[in-house]
Every structure is written in C-alpha cells, then in structure tokens.
Design a protein around this nucleic acid. Sequence first.
DNA 1: ATTCTATTTGGGAGCGCTCCCAAAGTCTCC
DNA 2: GGAGACTTTGGGAGCGCTCCCAAATAGAAT
Lengths: 356, 356
Amino acid sequence: MGTRPTVRPNLVEVAKASGVSRSTVSRVINNDPNVKAATRERVLAAIRSLNYQPNIAARGLASGRTHVLGLVIPQGVSALFSDPYFPILIQGISGACNRLDYSVMLWLAEPEFERRMIRQVLHGGLIDGVIVSSMVLDDPIIQALVEHKKPFVLVGRHPHHTDVNFVDTDNVGGARDAVAHLMRLGRQRVATITGPLNMIPGADRRDGYLAAFNERGLVSNPDLIIEGDFTEAGGYLAMQRLLPHRPDAVFVASDVMAIGALRALQQANRRVPEDVALIGFDDIPAAARAQPPLTSVRQPIQQLGDTAVQVLLDQINNPDQGPQRVLFPPTLMIRTSCGHLMRRTTLPGPHRGGGI
Amino acid sequence: MGTRPTVRPNLVEVAKASGVSRSTVSRVINNDPNVKAATRERVLAAIRSLNYQPNIAARGLASGRTHVLGLVIPQGVSALFSDPYFPILIQGISGACNRLDYSVMLWLAEPEFERRMIRQVLHGGLIDGVIVSSMVLDDPIIQALVEHKKPFVLVGRHPHHTDVNFVDTDNVGGARDAVAHLMRLGRQRVATITGPLNMIPGADRRDGYLAAFNERGLVSNPDLIIEGDFTEAGGYLAMQRLLPHRPDAVFVASDVMAIGALRALQQANRRVPEDVALIGFDDIPAAARAQPPLTSVRQPIQQLGDTAVQVLLDQINNPDQGPQRVLFPPTLMIRTSCGHLMRRTTLPGPHRGGGI
DNA sequence: ATTCTATTTGGGAGCGCTCCCAAAGTCTCC
DNA sequence: GGAGACTTTGGGAGCGCTCCCAAATAGAAT
C-alpha cells in the first residue's frame, strides 16, 4: 500500500510487464482465441498485479463499443417516487449489467432537457445501446432511435412501433384474467379504474377489462370505467367518483391506485371484499400488506429489466437479426380483497348502502 | 429528413463547414473566451446545422474530463424497493446533472460485483467524480476513493471519514426535536424504533433520541429502544416487541417503519394518537396519507441530491480547496399521529388496554 | 530437410478530441 | 510607420485503445 503508483497503468505497461506486445494484451482482454494459453496466463498475471482496467473512453473511441448501455426513463417525474415499479426495473437492469460486464447510464428525461438527452444518446458516442422505458405514445426518443439505427429495446410495447425489440408484460391478458376472475366469483357490476389512457399500460389494461366482457358476450357499462393516473391520490378520487354507480367489484390498473381506492372505500364504510371486491395490478410489496391483503396481477418487473438487457446485447452483437419481442405472462395473486365465490343469498341488492 | 447522413459529424467537418480550424471549433464548444465573436457565431451556426455533438469518449481520452458522474448506491438491494428515499435522491441528482450538462452512471453495488465496480469507477477513465450514497460503516468504496484521490462526495456523513465532502440531513437534530416534541406534549414513556445501528442514519437518529433525554436530565429506558431495519415489516415486528413495555409515544426512525408500527398498533387495538403517539422520519408522500396522518421529520431528499452534484463539481473544478460539509436542517411536519398537548386527565394509566 | 499451411505475435494507423506552442492578425502609441 | 503588446488562429502531438496486415513461429505433410 502506498508504494504502488495511483496512476492508471495502460496497455503498454501491461505489455512491458508481461513481455509481449500491445496487441497481444488487447487480444487477451478481449478474449480473442488466437492467443497461446501460456501467453494468456502471463498477460493475465500482469493485469492482475498491476490492477489494470481498460480505459473505457479509449476503447470506445477505437472500437465504437463502450460496454455502456443507456437507460432512458421519460415521462413525468412524479410516478418515479410513488410507484416501486421503476426502482425494481432499474434493479433488474443493473443486476443484468453487472453480470454481463456492462455499465448503465441513467437519463431521467425531463422534457426541457429531452433534446439534449437525445443528442447525447445518439451522437455522444458513449453508448452501445439504449433501454427505453417509455409509456407514453408520442415519445420523440423512440423515433430518433429508429431513424439513427441505434440499437435499442423498449420496456413496454409500443403500438406505433411494432417492429422493434421490446419486452413487456401481457397487460391485456393480465387484466382480462383479473376481471374474468371477479365475474366467475359472481360479481355483477365489475368496474375499473384505469391508468391514464394515453399511457400504453393504461390503455392495455383497460382493453383487457373490455375483453373480459366481450368474451362473455357482455357489454361494459361506461359509468363503471373511470380514468385514473397511477397515483394513490388518483385512485382515491376515482373510487369516490365510482361509488354512486354501485360497483360490487373494481379492477384497479395499479396497486398504488388500488390502495387509494381501498382508502376511499373504507372511508365510505364499504366492506372489502363483502361489498366491493378489489383487484390491483403489479403486486408491489405493499399489496400483500394492505388491509385486507390485496389480490393483484403480478408482473415480473425485475425479470423484465433483466431480459431487456439480454435482448439489447443480443441486438448489438447481431445487428442483422430481426427484432425480438418478449411477452411475460402475469400471474394473478389471489388474496383476500377479491373475496370468494358469492352465494346467491349474498348477492348485493340494488343499493345496500355501506356500513358495518 | 433522410438526406442528411446519419453518421456523426466530427470536429473536422464542423471546421470545414465554418472555414476555421479544428482548434477554433474546439475553443467554441469549450467556451474559450479567445475567439472573436464573429467567428464564434459562424462556428455555432455550423454546429447547429450539422447537429454536431462532441464525442464524449474522445473528449474524455484527450482531456481526462468526461462530464460523467458516477452514482454508487451500495448496501443491500432490498431498501431500494420499499423506501422512496433513493428514487427521490436519484431524481435530485439527475435533475442537477441535466441542468449542469453532466450525465450519470449508476452502480447499484451488489457485493459480489463490488470489486469490479470499484475498479471500473477508479480506473475506467470514464468518470470525473463519484457520488456515494452509502449508509454502512465499512464500505470499501470510500477507502478506495480516498486512496486514489478520485473526487467524490458522500450523501450522508461518515463517522470515520470526517475530512471528506458530504451533504447530509441533520439526523441527530431532527430526531432530538421529534422526541422533544413528544415530551413537551406530556408523553411519559417515549420509545423508539431505530434503524439498523450499523447504518449511519440509524445510529444518528438513535443518538438524537438519547440527546433529548440527556438535555432534560432524564435517562432513557433500554426496554423502550428496539432496533428495526428500515422496512415496513421490521417496523411492524418492532412495535409488537415494544407493546408489552407500554410506551405512550414512539419515535420511529423512518416513515416506512412507522407505517408498519401503525399497523401493529391498530391490530393490537391501540389508538393513535390517544394511546400511543407516533412520529416518523423522512416525510415520504405516504406519511400524509396514513390513517391517522403521520407526523414526520422531513428531510429535503431531492435537495440533498442536487447539492451533492454541486459540491462534487466544485471539488472537481477546484481540487485544492478543502472538503465541503453541508448539513440540512430537517423540519418537523406535525400531523395527527403525534396528538396534542395532553391534559392531566387523559394521561394514560399504568395499563389501559386498547380498543374502540 | 523442405515446403506449405495454420497459428500466434508485432507494429502502424487512426478513432475524435484537447493541449500546447508558434504563427498570423490587430491594435496602440510614440 | 514601425516596434511592441495583445488577441486570435492553426497545426502537431498524443490520450489508450482496436483493427488490420504483415512477420514470425510452430506444426504438418511430403
């Protein structure tokens, strides 16, 4: 400690220390098979003893490959606080990058800096590929990535760009299954609190709700569809607006909103699940801890992030293959809030009022 | 659209387009004052028309400055999901970086990849400085940063490294004020659920609790101090262990734990605040929405991130100045859960039991 | 041993930028 | 009008790496 210089060694010094040329060291660190085993060992020993780490900037300059991925999270800032979705996603992405020897650059795109961000992603030369977790339809970054042929993968499908890489949860299917479950339990007035319908998961989950009706030849009641905003407060307000229409079940498009809805129900003295059954979406940790524990559609968020990295690297390494599309099936986690099969006698009458 | 080449223009092309030399263009993009105004205009026009963006890798190689900051979040992964602290901190850091024309590389340090991460941060040559949001005492990254003289700033003070840059909330003071408030309201048996005591904010907030006793010449009761783990479940369990010791107030070292504690109290039919007053820490959004709304010590998390960036850039630009230490005073957000001044008649008896 | 091929290694060139020093241009003042 | 000082510009060198081609070496076949 202390005698070793704190300056970074470079290729040439490693080469000198192991008695080979620059090129050979380069081959070793890039796993080129054309190196004799003995030579490779010698070089690796020198690398270890000098604590050598290739300079990413130089490597990026020379090869155009930096082993850095960009993660772009557009959309309003607010959701990032309130919903554990993004932290878990970031976790999944970061874990995969650690494992695969990549690094992550993070852009939380604020609209006012979006143009600069796009320029930097596309032209900065520092990024091998981009993971975009956009949920809004008209995101300029996607168009820019397509035009500049930058490798990228979407987390969450995009209806206008179907021929690009994406990984997603089957939001439509998950919502449909949840609503079908409520119907199977005998609920007659199944409502939904949607996400913002200009966000793709918002629209998809709404479509799943509608699909459950269509499949049974039923028509949905527009009064029972309220648009929320994926926040707790939004779920609370939406539930309040829904109450006069006497739903006996609500499919809420996110757990965070469902928790808000639950609060509104309790305030109105409606029992869950006896008076109103509730199913959320995402299965965040708080869902299981709610009172009553919240039935929820679980999506494998961390796996989404992990897979996004794999798809992106695959695309970077084989640019000529077609786009990959991965859709994970969600799982309905049945807890208390959706209730059991209703016996005829407990079917709600036209208007029961609430209360203990 | 379409005719413009998708390849990135470089300095030489900008130089050619504006009829000056490479060097002059370089001066313009680096805001060197030694450029005639007319020339500068001409170059800027060319930059705009070519949509030029300096190559970060090349710039980093040549100058050793990349305009990239590293953000290292060590510690177990779990806290990242459950607590909005980190998302908000990241938000603050990212916002400041956007404003100041920097980018962020994110490392969620998993222990198994920590050595590689450190090597990359220190020797990768891609990072101008590092923001470390460590909360554990024996973090190897901090030692490594000190030894290699890499500019860095801690978010959260570190008791062993007092001569380094840091920004922090005054955790001791915030906790002391919260406990003093409970005492002033007439509570007799003020307990605390601490964070993990090997985490710095955990220890600091415990110390603040103790300080409130010391300042009044009181001694604290060890039975009323339970170590938690900053999770909801941990707060729930800690509260259960605390109940037999009949606290009439609890200072909980984080809101997430406080929400768990609240759940335990309600399950045990203890009224909040009548039987047990509660104060949390952090003032996360969920605190205000709890039932009853949770009194909490607010720390300016986003500002912490923002300031960390400023301090770090300051340090990068003036490496010879001494370390900066910034301590933000927290604010006690008084809501329902801590109750009002107790009249003598409502002082709790030895054991009242709970219940509606 | 000799030729031919396959494997392994070495060194030049260049990625796009900054830094430095020297050259050219401009202004001032006696 | 020319010396001196200051401002502005240009071009060489080099950051640490990869890529490519050529050279050296080893191995196989005759």
